[in-house]
Design a protein around this nucleic acid. Structure first.
Lengths: 196, 196
DNA sequence: TTTTTTAATGAACGAACATTCATTTATATT
DNA sequence: AATATAAATGAATGTTCGTTCATTAAAAAA
C-alpha cells in the first residue's frame, strides 16, 4: 500500500485558486493546472472525480476557511453592533489578505456552478447568522427587516470596497486604497442604517 | 456589393448574452454560439475580430444600455435623495427585467477580462456620477466620503438584493422575492446611512 | 524479504476548441 | 444585364481540451 501525498493535493488546490484568479475559468485547463502543480494530469483524477468536482471541492474548502476567519472572536450573544463589527472586520481582513481566494470565490458565485455549490454548502453558517439577526431584532438592537435585506446592506458594501481596493492594486492611475479608517467609516454608516 | 445584415449581428450579440448567462464563459464556444444564432462560425468573424473582441463589444453595448436606463428621468441638479432614488430604482428595475444581461455583466466584472473592459468603458458615466456626488456633498445633502465608499453603500446592496431575487427564481425552496416594498425599504436605509 | 496495494505517471484518446480559407451567394453599382 | 464587391458559408486547419489507461514506483503489510 502507498499513502496519498497530502502535499500534492494541496499543491493542486492552491494552483486551482491561483490560475482561476489569474485567467478565469476558461483559462483553467487540467493540463496547465497539472504543470503548475508539478504533477501529471492523471494524478488530479486520483484526488478529484472530474474538473467540476475539483472546483466544487476547492470552493467548499475556501468558503469554510473564510467562514472560520469571519467568526474568529465572534460570540452570537454579543450586542448586535459589536457582533456585526467583529464579523465585518474579520471578513474584510480575510479578503484583503487573500485576494486570490476572494477572486476565486466571486468568480464561482457568479458562474453557473454557483447553484450546485450552494446546494452542498454553508447551511450551518447561514443558520447561525439568521439566529444572530433574529435575536438582534427581538432585542430591538436591529430594525425589523428580512434576512436578505440585512445581509445586502451589511456586507455587500464591504465586498465592493475590497473589490475597488483589489482593482486599484493592478491599475496604476487613481488608485483606491482601502485603509482601516475608510473601513471604519463604512462600517459606522452600515450600523447607522441598520440600528433603530 | 452586399450589405451587412444587422439582424445577424444582433442575433449573435443576443446569443452571447444568453449562452454566457446560462453556461458561463467556458460554456460559450464559437461553434455553439454560431449554431444558436443561426449562422456559420466564420460569419462571427465578419462582425468581430475574435472571441475576446466580441465579448468586450457586447459588454460595452450592454453597459451602455444599462447606464441609459439608469439615468432615465434623472437630472444632476435634483436634490440628492431624489436623484439617488431615481437612479437606484431605475437600475434595479433594469436588472430585474434583464436578468441575463445582469448575469452577463456580473460575470464579466468578475473575470480577468474586466480590466480590459474598464480601460475602454464608461468614463463619461462615472465622471457625471462623481460630479453629482461632490455637488451633493457641497450642499450638505450627503455626508463627506470618498466616491468609492458612496458607491459601495449606495448601490452594492441593491445588486445583492437583485442577485438573491434571481437565485430565488431558480431554486424552489425558501424563495426570496424582491417586491417594490422591499426595494423601497432598502433604499430608505441606504439614504438614512448617507444623509447627515 | 516478499507480497500486496494503491499512488503516480506519460502517452494516448476522441472530442471540441478558435480561427482560417476557398468557394458561393447576394446585391449595389455600372 | 453585366460587373464588382463584400457578405456568408461549410469544411478544414492545427491545437488544446478533459479524461483514461497500461505501466511503473513506492511503501505498508505479510
Amino acid at each position: 500500500m502507498r499513502n496519498r501525498d497530502d502535499q500534492k493535493e494541496q499543491a493542486i488546490r492552491e494552483k486551482v485558486i491561483e490560475l482561476t484568479a489569474q485567467e478565469g475559468f476558461d483559462g483553467l485547463s487540467m493540463h496547465k493546472l497539472a504543470r503548475a502543480a508539478g504533477v501529471s494530469p492523471a494524478t488530479i483524477y486520483i484526488y478529484f472525480k472530474d474538473r467540476e468536482d475539483m472546483l466544487l471541492q476547492v470552493f467548499t474548502e475556501v468558503s469554510d476557511q473564510m467562514y472560520k476567519a469571519t467568526i474568529e472572536s465572534f460570540d452570537p450573544d454579543m450586542p448586535f453592533a459589536e457582533g456585526l463589527r467583529v464579523q465585518w472586520i474579520n471578513r474584510a481582513h480575510y479578503f484583503i489578505n487573500h485576494p486570490m481566494e476572494m477572486q476565486f470565490l466571486e468568480q464561482m458565485r457568479h458562474s453557473p456552478l454557483n447553484e450546485k455549490a450552494m446546494a452542498q454548502n454553508a447551511s450551518m453558517f447561514k443558520e447561525s447568522m439568521q439566529k444572530f439577526v433574529h435575536q438582534a431584532i427581538d432585542r430591538k438592537e436591529l430594525i425589523q427587516l428580512p434576512f436578505e435585506v440585512y445581509w445586502s446592506i451589511a456586507f455587500a458594501p464591504m465586498y465592493q470596497l475590497v473589490k475597488y481596493h483589489a482593482q486599484g492594486n493592478s491599475s496604476a492611475s487613481e488608485r483606491f486604497e482601502l485603509t482601516e479608517n475608510i473601513l471604519e467609516q463604512a462600517l459606522r454608516l452600515v450600523i447607522k442604517a441598520l440600528t433603530p
